[in-house]
Structure formats: C-alpha cells, structure tokens
Design a protein around this nucleic acid. Structure first.
Length: 283
DNA sequence: ACGCCCTCCTGTTGGC
DNA sequence: TGCCAACAGGAGGGCG
C-alpha cells in the first residue's frame, strides 16, 4: 500500500496522539506479523513515553523515553487508526474499507485517552523494538538516502546509474539506492521526467538524471500535500482517503488518454509489478 | 556487485 | 451467476 507520501501522512496523523503521551497498554493479538513479535515487546513498551515520532524511508520511528525506538512498517496493507474517546464505541466508526475488525492486530492505549489501532490484512507490516536511535538496526542500516533530503541530487543519481543495466524504474524502487519510492511513484516520477521505465539505468544522461531527481521530488512532495494516494485500502489515521489518485498521470490509467498529450497510456509487467507510461511523452 | 526470481498473506477483481 | 487465476501500494532472501 503505502509509499513515502502515505507513510508521511500517517506520521503526521499519529503525531498528535502519540507525542508526549505514555503507552499505558499494548494489546498484541497475534504472535507475529511479517516477523514474530519480540518476546519482551509488550513489556518493553508499556509505561514508556513517546518523545517524538519520526520517519526513515517507509518506517515510522517512535522515540521512547528509554532512548530506544519503536519501528513501525505498514507493509502492503497496514494502516493505523487513531480513535479518540468519543469514537471508541464499537461499531460507531469504520476502520477499513470492509469494516472488518478481524485484522486489528495491535492496539495501543495512550495516556492521552486515544487508542491507536494497527490493522493489516496481509500482515506484511511489522512492529519492532530497537535499541538506541534504531538507525543501526539491520532493517535500516543499508537504506539509501531520503529522496527529499539534499543527498539525493543529480550528481548522486547520475553516479549510481553508471554501469547498471537494470531498468531505471527498478533502480528507483531499490531501497539501497533511494528510499520511499514504490510502484506508483516510480511510474509517476518517470512520466514527469519524460523517461521510459525500461531504459537501462546507465543510458540516462546527466540531464535525464537531473530531470528524474526533480520528478521524484515533485511527485512525492505533491502527493504528501494531497494526503497520499488511495487506490484500494489506504486510509489515513482519521479514516480519510488520500486524494492524490486524481492527480496521477499514468498509474492505473492503461488505455486512457495521457493527461498531457492524449496518447493512450500503456502498461506492462516489469519485475512482477505493473508499470505505466506514455509512449509519446516518454523517451 | 549485480540482476533476476520467488516468497510471505489475504482480499478483490476480471475473464470465462 | 459462479468459479478461480491473477493481481494488489513492500521488501527480504536465495541463486547464478
């Protein structure tokens, strides 16, 4: 489900309910998600105050009073819902599109009175307790630069694309090289940069690399502003969808006219994922 | 080091 | 109408 803009939107939604509040109770209803819950996961969390809520790549990071961190990843279908006091009555609210409570796997009761519910039908998400600032955790240690940070610039992208035969779209989705760009925004960024997704990475000129950096940054920034993209499941912490879908240029628009030139959008499968592009605008 | 392929899991959809 | 294969926003891991 969620790429950087959706995760960032979730972070902003969770922040008021978590920051400065204590985790009174952590109700873990399964033994595992993507990974088994650590043995002492609940014991280490309960009673801790959340000092701040940050993000690295697609991980949410709750900084805890102990100096450690709670890492939260949404996988493909994970979502958080914040329930305030007046919304806690069962049946009075809806969480997911299907209103199916069966996949509410973890509930945090916060001292603020809010309940924070993690729901994840496919269970590719994960919640991990990590020591220190968490950046040395194996899952984070090898991540590439943040696409919206200064380190992701034309020089960097040009450099890492040299000698790589891999298709540029797949390179964009390689989190060791740049984080946060998933299947939707890779297609959208390439459209903005006017580069075909199948191009070998090493075929990009310096000018291509510069346009692609701008394309990635622009699409992510604009999507954050719209609260992310809701295709199917994704909902924010308040249950509202993201509105960037109506601003997509190519994703899920196969056969529809390109919003720039009118040529029908094409799609094909690349690395077992759908890719979309305009055969006229992108070279 | 790199590139390709498969896997985890459930729910929904589209084609016959 | 019903069945079932294909597919869905991530990413770890194995293999050549």
């Amino acid at each position: 489900m969620p790429e950087l803009p959706e995760v960032e939107t979730v972070r902003r939604g969770l922040q008021p309910a978590m920051e400065g509040a204590k985790i009174m109770k952590a109700d873990v209803r399964r033994k595992d998600l993507r990974f088994p819950f650590q043995k002492d996961f609940v014991a280490r969390l309960e009673g801790q105050t959340v000092k701040g809520l940050g993000r690295r790549a697609k991980y949410l990071m709750a900084d805890l009073g102990s100096g450690d961190v709670l890492l939260m990843h949404l996988g493909m279908s994970g979502s958080f819902r914040v329930l305030n006091d007046d919304e806690k009555t069962p049946g009075k609210f809806h969480f997911s599109r299907s209103e199916d409570r069966a996949h509410d796997h973890v509930v945090f009761q916060m001292s603020s009175g809010a309940a924070i519910v993690f729901n994840d039908p496919r269970r590719f998400g994960s919640l991990l307790y990590a020591s220190g600032d968490g950046l040395a955790h194996p899952r984070l240690a090898k991540l590439g630069p943040e696409p919206l940070a200064p380190g992701f610039d034309a020089d960097y992208l040009f450099r890492i694309t040299r000698r790589r035969r891999v298709a540029i779209k797949q390179l964009l989705m390689n989190s060791r090289l740049v984080v946060g760009v998933g299947n939707i925004y890779a297609s959208e960024a390439l459209f903005r940069a006017r580069i075909r997704p199948r191009r070998a990475a090493r075929s990009l000129s310096r000018a291509d690399a510069a346009r692609l950096v701008r394309g990635v940054r622009a699409v992510l920034t604009q999507a954050i502003r719209s609260g992310g993209t809701t295709l199917r499941d994704y909902l924010g912490t308040d249950g509202a969808p993201g509105y960037f879908r109506q601003r997509l240029y190519v994703y899920e628009r196969r056969g529809k006219p390109c919003r720039r030139c009118g040529t029908p959008v094409r799609s094909f499968t690349q690395g077992q994922r759908s890719t979309y592009y305009c055969p006229s605008c992108q070279k």
